[in-house]
Design a protein around this nucleic acid. Sequence first.
DNA 1: TGAATAGTGTCTTTCAGACAGTATTGG
DNA 2: CCAATACTGTCTGAAAGACACTATTCA
Lengths: 252, 252
Amino acid sequence: MKTKNTPSSPKALVARVAGSGNAVDSIARPLVTVDVAIFSIRDDVLSVLLVQRGQGPDEPFPLRWALPGGFVDVKKDATIEDCARRKLADKTGVTTPYMEQLGSWGSAGRDPRAWSVTNVYFALIASDEFCQIDERPPQQWFPVGEAIPRPLAFDHDQLLDAALRRLRDKVEYTVLPASLLPREFTLPELQHTFEIVLNRQLDKSAFRTRMLSAKVIEETGNFRIGPRRPALLYRLAEDATRKLPATFRRAD
Amino acid sequence: MKTKNTPSSPKALVARVAGSGNAVDSIARPLVTVDVAIFSIRDDVLSVLLVQRGQGPDEPFPLRWALPGGFVDVKKDATIEDCARRKLADKTGVTTPYMEQLGSWGSAGRDPRAWSVTNVYFALIASDEFCQIDERPPQQWFPVGEAIPRPLAFDHDQLLDAALRRLRDKVEYTVLPASLLPREFTLPELQHTFEIVLNRQLDKSAFRTRMLSAKVIEETGNFRIGPRRPALLYRLAEDATRKLPATFRRAD
DNA sequence: TGAATAGTGTCTTTCAGACAGTATTGG
DNA sequence: CCAATACTGTCTGAAAGACACTATTCA
């Protein structure tokens, strides 16, 4: 585990001085970062928030677009999840969205500056909240699909693809898309959100039965008043992470 | 993103000297490790491989049991997955088991020595291969459940629980348990493995239909010869990661 | 009252589970 | 033939999808 440098070699010596003198200080440490794939629905299209990188002298991937993220700050952040929430709040001002970890990617080559590991999170924010989000450069929403300005910086093409796969997977057996809506929503709105993410039409009756029997949402008692018949408003239930009773029946 | 240390502060200065002088070198880096939750079936019980920690002067959690793992070696390892495979091969000699990433855990407090991030992998190895695995101390298989010598070192209780949850989740909709068997196996053997992991009996007929219609396994044409009627041998199909057509029907 | 959207009832199809049946081996 | 295990056929009940139906609002 320890490097082969003897204590008298310059590198090991310096590394020792830098820390408290324990064995762990003689080990070369990778860079540790966090990146966040933030999705929302914008103009009825699933979109992701990207940030354009600067073009300083030491800047890798100048002017390329990337998922928002940055180095873990061992002074500020208690956990990597805190770090992800900090990045998210910095970019969007939203502090309590749906967020889960996607995984970590680490290799010698993914960052030209050094061996680095990134811890990737996946966030959904309500479409009524992104309106308040600054979109002035270098930050911008991109509809997923052809519009993504690939190639992204680092290995972010790969990270974004993994995030999309996770979202589309989980739509099949969870109420995840509800987190793309305001806290209160109608069943037709929820169905519409599912249809956008799944990219196919769903049957109204089957959808309602499925959602209500799973008890993942509950009535608020309020109504959405519109130009036509008002619709009951629902919110996510306590245990909204519960799996739905079955997947949407697959086509043959 | 950069630390608040001025270039003249001792710590920043030393850190600069240690590296190439780029901006990234002035950032305090967390420790980066990899841990692997290795499962196998031993005497018809799902078991996990644990390693007992030493008791040197700087050793955290002396004599506690832990998931096998260790520091990423930026010289040896091209990726964190390579690192996990290296740890796995070191411990078991098995080089091509089922392996997937579970996620990463990072916080200020999880390692008393420093802010650290661990990248956790999840491995299944065939029960005919673990026989060849050294079990002399400090390495030992433990049946999951009461027999686990908790509390484990670091936050490994939490990591192990997450690994078990992942396994039990995926049993519901993938052929994962086939990776706990030799490369060729019979359908009754596969069913038995599912039953061990799920901890409940399954119906033979439904199980067979489910596995065969999903095309996740294929006949080898060979038979397992035993004391009674021979059974057809199967192997995992090319696309064995495909989801099964439905979950086992849940109880009411 | 009509248009539009919200929500329900009912029939059909599909498929997992129960369980009894048949098949194939060694002794 | 018997015991034991491998494998199959048939029925049933549960639930998803199709789709027509009713309900409630505004104009």
